[in-house]
């Protein structure tokens, strides 16, 4: 007799958060991210049926099929997941939305929609699985590839990269993180914190493409990222339903309280980085580019910004569930309108 698997606070096991087997290449960074998404939702104890998973097109966008089988999924068209997410959010704001996109899907074809999603502050976790290449079409450079980065064929990238984190902050994004598929501990903490955030939470995750961009000369390879990763802080997340108090040396930890009462704990490294300082976040990202640094962690957070649901002033009951008595005005309303037109 085998022991029953451990369960989370709503009585579900890790298996209940899994999806179909992945069809991506062995060792793909995306699969490592998928594993952390499963873990994050399991540990948060989110009800799977209250999650909507969305994606665009590309290798990364296939991954919502590989987690949360009990959640509705929407694999949309290339670069257009943000608009779908905006509509879903309007129809049912009780859903937790997680979107998975890639660097091609977000930084090229979908850049416009990405910008407007962030600008509206649509509440969702928006993950960019960033490998600097188009995997599904066999290795063309994407718009996040670093200047001078080498393709598998030996061609050098001649255009500067779009930094999606820097761009997101510029657009007023209220939660911006960067991580690495090979740093599960940091990634799962960031994902959980993003889940507690009310607004768009952008997480740019360097996720090496083992087939087309994992060679010498690539700045998105496992080797390069492992060697270069510099965490801005040690990231911890304490959900609202857990009361853990750990004693830290005074001044060594910054705590950010989220809307739902959860807390992000940022333990300082040699850097003294305050993620609530927008200007400093921008400067830090710019400097990192100049110094060829790969900084990870919570780059920016603003828990005071209104999300799109609040701005749109919809009621507590999701629009999708409103009965006819609410959505169809009475006959007297039509009679009144007609009389005015006579």
């Amino acid at each position: 007799m085998t022991a029953a698997p451990p369960t989370n606070r709503i009585g579900l096991s890790l298996n209940d958060y899994k999806g179909a087997p992945s069809t991506l290449c062995d060792g793909c960074g995306h699969d490592a991210i998928t594993a952390q998404i499963i873990k994050a939702f399991y540990e948060l104890g989110t009800e799977p049926h209250m999650v909507a998973k969305l994606s665009g097109i590309g290798c990364s966008s296939k991954t919502p099929a590989y987690f949360l089988n009990r959640s509705h999924g929407f694999n949309s068209v290339h670069g257009r997941m943000p608009s779908v997410a905006t509509g879903v959010s309007m129809a049912n704001h009780n859903l937790t939305m997680i979107g998975v996109s890639g660097d091609g899907d977000t930084a090229s074809i979908g850049l416009g929609q990405f910008c407007h999603l962030v600008r509206r502050n649509v509440p969702m976790i928006y993950i960019v699985e960033n490998n600097g290449v188009y995997g599904l079409t066999k290795g063309q450079f994407s718009a996040t590839a670093d200047l001078g980065s080498k393709a598998k064929s030996g061609v050098l990238n001649e255009l500067p990269p779009i930094d999606l984190c820097g761009l997101a902050i510029e657009l007023g994004c209220s939660f911006v993180g960067r991580s690495f598929a090979g740093d599960p501990k940091q990634l799962v903490a960031l994902l959980k914190a993003a889940g507690s955030h009310r607004g768009t939470a952008v997480i740019d995750v360097i996720s090496p493409c083992v087939t087309f961009n994992n060679h010498e000369g690539s700045t998105k390879s496992y080797k390069y990222a492992k060697e270069m990763e510099t965490p801005l802080h040690e990231l911890g997340y304490v959900p609202f339903f857990e009361q853990i108090s750990v004693d830290y040396e005074p001044g060594s930890v910054q705590e950010v309280e989220m809307h739902d009462g959860s807390k992000i704990r940022l333990k300082k490294t040699e850097r003294d980085y305050d993620p609530t300082d927008e200007i400093n976040a921008v400067v830090t990202i710019k400097k990192a580019h100049a110094n060829k640094e790969f900084l990870t962690g919570l780059l920016y957070i603003n828990e005071t910004k209104e999300d799109f649901i609040t701005i749109m002033n919809v009621g507590d009951a999701p629009l999708a569930t409103l009965p006819e008595s609410v959505t169809r005005p009475p006959k007297s309303a039509l009679d009144h309108i007609m009389a005015e037109l006579m």
Partner: peptide
């Protein structure tokens, strides 16, 4: 409000939003 009207950034987004909303039951 028992409604949401969104002026989208373009028609690509307008139909995407409407489809997302329709899918989720609006």
């Amino acid at each position: 409000a028992s409604f949401a009207v969104i002026q989208a950034e373009d028609e690509l987004a307008a139909i995407g939003m409407a489809l997302g909303a329709g899918w989720a039951g609006a």
